[in-house]
């Protein structure tokens, strides 16, 4: 009898917790359906595979953040390039903070009409991974990698305009 009571108590005490989690989860799932509503959080090791490809398609990986003014200014250039070149693979690696995904990042992307894939890199000891991406990178953003399976270039600066970006892509991706 005593045991029964304590089990009941245990069950009851778990109840609110479960509901909390379940509701939160189903909310999350429902948002997966709309475009760019799922922003996964990566660390450097899990991001690394996305910085290489076997394909000869043009890939652009852009490190940026909402708090970085030149980055925000550059986003429309990437967006325009993507619109003109649907075959390009663009990945926006946000260095914003995980706690801001729902409240700031998603509304920001929606407002700017950004549909490129966005992931969030949360790996605080940047000194340990900046060199693994590019030893020439100081850590300042925006920082962009243009690559395919054969060629690769790194850009620690904001592209001035579409022409600038196209030039860099053409310089990098020579033989296809």
């Amino acid at each position: 009898m005593k045991l029964q009571k304590s089990i009941l108590l245990l069950a009851v005490s778990f109840l609110p917790l479960c509901y909390g989690f379940i509701t939160e989860n189903s909310e999350l799932e429902s948002t997966y359906l709309s475009s760019n509503e799922d922003i996964p959080i990566y660390n450097f090791e899990s991001l690394k595979p996305l910085l290489n490809t076997n394909s000869d398609k043009v890939h652009i990986v852009n490190f940026w953040a909402m708090w970085c003014a030149p980055c925000v200014k550059e986003l429309p250039i990437l967006k325009e390039y993507e619109a003109n070149n649907p075959n390009v693979e663009i990945l926006l690696v946000s260095l914003d903070f995980p706690e801001n995904i729902e409240t700031k990042l998603k509304p920001f992307l929606k407002k700017k009409g950004i549909t490129s894939k966005v992931v969030l890199l949360d790996d605080p000891d940047a000194n340990s991974w900046i060199d693994k991406i590019d030893p020439n990178w100081s850590g300042a953003i925006p920082f962009t990698i243009i690559f395919n399976n054969k060629n690769r270039s790194y850009h620690e600066r904001a592209f001035a305009n579409l022409q600038d970006l196209e030039n860099e892509i053409n310089k990098t991706i020579k033989d296809n």
């Binding site: 990566y42 660390n43 450097f44 949360d122 790996d123 000891d125 000194n127 030893p135």
Partner: peptide
């Protein structure tokens, strides 16, 4: 949901450049 190892981690902090 949060991929990857513990934050921080003891990597080589030495700079090559």
């Amino acid at each position: 949901d949060r991929k990857g190892p513990p934050r921080g981690g003891g990597h080589n902090p030495e700079q090559t450049k």
